[in-house]
Design a protein around this nucleic acid. Structure first.
Length: 277
DNA sequence: AAACAGGCCTAAA
DNA sequence: TTTAGGCCTGTT
């Protein structure tokens, strides 16, 4: 990977595994949006940025300081995804899936945002998940001007904790409203310490998350994978279950993929959802 | 119209 | 320990 810093622009070259479309559309996140020319805009906490690709170049619209402080880690740029693709390509199916998903990276998302987003995701389709999360931010986040548009930050737990289910009504998230509010209160009251979650280890983190009403195995796995970078977590959703039934009808354990099972899962998920075989 | 969508909870065997 | 039914809402 090579970096070049220009005036308010970071250029990345010699990096194969970075495809903005796949990264933002593979299902791990819900807020990044492309404009008509394929330039994606999104936020991490209160930092907004645009990301796009021009041939072999990845462009990130920020200066060196912000890149190093925020986006370098957010995009997980120190990790060798080529090596991981090779490691999880344990058979023909996974070789195809990993090749198809080449360019995906697991983002280091904000924990609270990931927690909230994946509670909302349950029993929902992606367009509606996006709609609900956007409504949540527009109603309760902070507006900020960015390149002529108004973006909204993801509302902190404190903001949500102060709401009643009826105040959450405008975001149309249905029965998940009570879950979100309860989770926010758990965080603000200290029943769930998101900062200390990693130190509890994988099992400990899953257990702590599942103590929140509305978080079960699948959602907890997504939170530790996308929020805590526990890359061996293997969320089992309906798409993955379909893949497993078809390709691994006998016994299956995510441990066949080793410590990057979660990335294998993401390749599987993206491949399965593409409708290809 | 009825079923389904990236689950979870509760009650009941 | 596993299974069935209900749950908000929007879309097909």
């Amino acid at each position: 990977m090579k970096l070049e810093f220009k005036n308010n622009l970071t250029e990345i070259t010699e990096l194969e595994d970075f495809d903005p479309v796949k990264i933002f559309e593979c299902g791990q996140c819900f807020r990044w949006r492309p404009d008509d020319s394929g330039v994606y805009t999104g936020l991490f906490r209160n930092h907004a940025v645009s990301v796009w690709r021009e041939e072999e170049k990845i462009l990130i619209g920020c200066d060196r300081e912000t890149f190093e402080a925020v986006w370098h880690d957010y995009f997980d740029l120190d990790r060798d995804y080529a090596a991981i693709r090779s490691a999880v390509g344990i058979d023909e199916y996974m070789k195809k899936a990993a090749e198809f998903g080449k360019g995906i990276r697991i983002l280091r998302q904000d924990r609270w945002e990931a927690l909230c987003s994946f509670i909302i995701s349950q029993c929902n389709n992606i367009p509606r998940i996006r709609k609900i999360i956007e409504a949540l931010c527009e109603n309760f986040g902070e507006p900020m001007e960015f390149e002529g548009k108004t973006l909204f930050t993801f509302p902190p737990a404190e903001r949500i904790a102060a709401l009643t289910p009826s105040e959450l009504e405008p975001i149309r998230c249905g029965y998940r409203a009570a879950y979100i509010i309860d989770a926010a209160r758990a965080v603000t009251e200290g029943r769930l310490d998101l900062e200390q979650l990693s130190s509890a280890g994988f099992e400990g983190a899953i257990k702590a998350l599942k103590s929140i009403s509305g978080i079960g195995d699948k959602v907890a796995s997504c939170i530790v994978l996308f929020g805590l970078q526990m890359l061996d977590a293997f969320p089992m959703d309906v798409w993955i279950k379909r893949v497993l039934k078809e390709n691994y009808p006998d016994k299956f354990s995510p441990s066949v993929f080793g410590k990057y099972a979660g990335i294998a899962q993401q390749y599987m998920f993206f491949y399965a959802r593409s409708g290809q075989k």
